[in-house]
Simulated assay, not measured.
Amino acid sequence: MLTAVDHVQLAAPPGSEALLRAFYGDVLGMTEEAKPAALAGRGGCWFAAGGVRLHLGAEAGFRPARKAHPGLRVRGIEAYADRLAAHGAEVTWDDALPGHRRFYSHDPVGNRLEFLEPRPGD
Rank of each mutant, 00 (worst) to 15 (best):
M1E: 03
M1P: 10
V5L: 02
D6E: 10
A11F: 13
A11D: 06
P13W: 11
S16D: 07
L19Y: 03
L20G: 05
L20T: 05
R21N: 10
R21V: 09
Y24Q: 09
M30Q: 04
E33T: 00
E33W: 01
E33F: 00
K35L: 12
K35E: 06
L39Q: 01
G44E: 07
A48M: 00
A48T: 07
G50R: 09
G50L: 11
R53A: 03
L54N: 08
H55E: 12
L56W: 11
E59M: 13
G61Y: 10
G61F: 11
A65Y: 11
R66Y: 08
K67T: 14
V74A: 04
V74E: 07
I77P: 02
A81M: 06
D82M: 10
A85M: 07
A85Y: 07
H87Q: 13
G88W: 10
A89V: 04
V91K: 00
V91E: 01
A96Q: 08
L97H: 14
H100Y: 15
R101F: 08
F103R: 01
S105D: 02
D107F: 08
N111W: 08
E114Y: 03
E114K: 02
F115Q: 03
P118S: 12
P118F: 06
R119W: 14
R119T: 15
R119L: 15
R119V: 15
G121E: 11
D122Y: 13
